[in-house]
Design a protein around this nucleic acid. Sequence first.
RNA 1: GCCUUGGUGGUGGAAAGGUAGACACGAGGGACUUAAAAUCCCUUGGACAGAAAUGUCCGUGCGGGUUCAAUUCCCGCCCGAGGCACCA
Length: 911
Amino acid sequence: MDYDFKKIEQKWQEKWAAEKTYSVSVDDSKPKYYVLDMFPYPSGAGLHVGHPLGYIASDIYSRYKRLKGFNVLHPMGYDAFGLPAEQYAIQTGRHPEKTTDENIARYRSQLDRIGFSFDWDRSFRTCDPSYYKWTQWAFIKMFKSWYDPDLDKARPITELVSRFETKGYDGISPEEWKDYSEKEKSDVLMRYRIAYLGETNVNWCEGLGTVLANDEVKDGVSVRGGFPVVQKKMAQWQLRVSAYAERLLKSLDNLEWTDSLKDMQRNWIGKSEGTEMVFDTECDGVHLPITIFTTRADTVFGVTFMVLAPESELVPQLTAASQKEAVEEYLSYAAKKTERERQAETKNITGVFTGSYGINPFTEEKIPIWISEYVLSGYGTGAIMGVPAHDSRDYAFAKKFNLPIIPLIEGADVSEESFDATEGIMMNSGFMNGMDVNTAIEAAKVYVEENKLGHRKTNYRLRDAIFSRQRYWGEPFPIYYKDGIPTPLPERELPLRLPEIDSFKPVHGEAPLKRAKNWTYKGYPLETSTMPGFAGSSAYYLRYMDPHNNEELVSAEANKYWRNVDLYVGGTEHAVGHLIYSRFWNKFLYDHGYVCEEEPFKKLINQGMIQGRSNFVYRKAGTNTFVSLGLKDKYKTTEIHVDVNIVHNDRLDLEAFKKWRPEFADAEFELENGEYICGWAVEKMSKSMYNVVNPDEICNSYGADTLRLYEMFLGPLEQSKPWDTNGIDGVHRFLKKLWRLFFHQDTVLVSDDEPSPAELKVLHTLIGKEEEDIESFSFNTNISAFMIAVNELTELKTSSRKILEPLVVLLSPFAPHMAEELWHTALGHSDSVVYAKFPEYNEAFTIEDSVKYPISFNGKTRFLVDLPKDASPAEVEKTVRELPDTAKFVGDKTIVKVIVVPGRIVNIVLK
RNA sequence: GCCUUGGUGGUGGAAAGGUAGACACGAGGGACUUAAAAUCCCUUGGACAGAAAUGUCCGUGCGGGUUCAAUUCCCGCCCGAGGCACCA
């Protein structure tokens, strides 16, 4: 019987689906394990081979955990709201729901072919009203909550209202509160709500009449149409993520995430402990105290100027009449740049003098106030003190505008660059002279507080999440405006369904939902923005626990059993966005007792990106003749992308090429040794580069099991790497070789023979390695080990059931279809290999890292022996001679080399 | 610019600080076959010496350092990738 992967894979996939092999339920008799993939956005291009990389890894792990006796929840769904579907709708007029449905159907059929162990009964899409009901529900909860700094958690807003009514709070007395109108009360509460409406800067494109994403803006103009884009303030719904900054930072410590990912999140949260200080200012005779934030209060003696962010609301008040024109000109210049452009542009220093002055609170000296784009309004107070001697950005600014530079640290040479390090002895600093910098920082803080110049303050870079989008294809906000006051819908009205509209184009300056007829609740207008992409993906992992529950997001029973995600697999591109929002969302629900775990994702693995490997052909200038790679330098040629699907091992399929596009129908070729060799390059996988490889193609020609193995064999999971079909024959051959251990033509080779020690050694080495490798996600090296094991067993002509049966179980996480087939046909089992037990590792049959046995390392066998540092050659020789007799495991290997290092280790290499 | 990450043969990659290049692809040679496919065996980082077994030297982006020993640790560069808050 040949290895007929097509027949086998179809057979088992049908059986798994029919028997619901992977469907799970709450089962208190077994420990749970929750393995989650970042669900895909179903794009029109379909699934490419990059998508399944993480899914295959998590599937291997899920199957492994099942063999280990866990009740494994392994679901899959679709992140279905998003911009691409909407833009496609604007171009074609097709409803995003239709195209999304089609894309999902295509994704599903592609996923099904790869043989994942998903529990499809739990699947959902975020654009389904029965799902987004719970996104809207959470939003209302956030709207109705505030962050209580004393309890350090979210509490119902009603508690805050009663504080206002009884004791007063935050400078508002009960009397004042009582006198407020409904509108005023609403405005005050908005300042505390977790979900709130507030002003923020957006990329506004007048030409398109809409707000744009940073991706849609390049060099100050819109990517589509090239219209100018400016920064504009707009009222937007926001989530008070910043309230959770400290908790988001702290609980990182207990997560099993990589240090690099935690670093990214820590830097994103950007905690800095410093000082808020008040500087008195004067503009055209009017005095105005302004607050700045600094982490270096010790450097106040070196402050020679102040800088405001262009968006700072202080700008109008601090602009002197004489500088008005210059300032306005500068503001319109700055409004044309996105924040990122402003940060990236450090060589070209810009700024404008406001004409007003501040007073240095330590020296009482008068210092000029400037405006510059390097100060960001979103961080700190949007105003800084300039210390050119000890901050490189301030230094560059001072140099450019000829502002004085006062060095504050002894021996620091600031003639060429600033001295940013926090070390050295202070000078020119009054009461701090002679202090060490770190002592001075603390002394300055004390001085500031004692002299009532300001106070200590912890700042976070983390900003509140902007939650409104002026788009159609997203969750509608369950908010209506009652006499201008934002009011949540009653929960019984959820879901608030996305209305039908006649066109998906934005209405000038307004969201597309403005077009919807009767978009009102009880006669009051409903909010017309929709929620962003991350809304639906922030709590989706909870919904999988109880996906059909129409009364709750997740029942307490289901949540108590499944708790949180044990293993989350996805790309690093989500390191700060989704993974911060999800953690925030979960903590919010935790505060209210809706979920029992404070963190959503216990362990996280980032899979790398799969890049495309493009192929090129070379056309001789002015002809329709294509020359092979090795000959191209002889002519003037044009490099043309060619579809990688008609190239195999960089050899072009000439006939397929002629058929590929009409203009190549009569192409001629200059070959090398009878073949056309293509050039290649690593690029992003995209349609336009013709380097998209569809997993279906691989399934057709090699089978899903080969695809699964190959994706894992390609390299370390976490690493980005180009997809290159060239090596796939290797793993396919391995599977065929493994198959031949069980079958010779139509004969089943499995016997009841007792296994030999050599066979047991091979098996148990593999069991130990597989356990270790899967736990550390080293699938690529594990497959290598599997290949070596199969080669050795082939050489040993193994037929013993006691070897082959565990081998199939070991294979099943990687190549489940083949494993099932062998389990049934060759080994005669009637139930699925899914229900098998992971084989027990017996180190008696393996070579371990002990002094007694050699260990197998890097394909070679070696002893590691501890010797005293001053061991004499004679002692070394004696030790080597007395090594235990391990011939029965080492076989006919003989010592070829003994390396003795004066340290303590002897390497004995065996061949 | 900032944060994170990577750089090893023709290719993907492997290496407790201890034989650099496991495993695999490709390539070259051979066996089987009328032939092809499939399968199996040998060679394969570079240079040099040798009839051969084998030996010597050079080699992990670049420049330094620590160490008996560095792909691995430290410092400084160069180049690529991901993210930078409205792509998902």
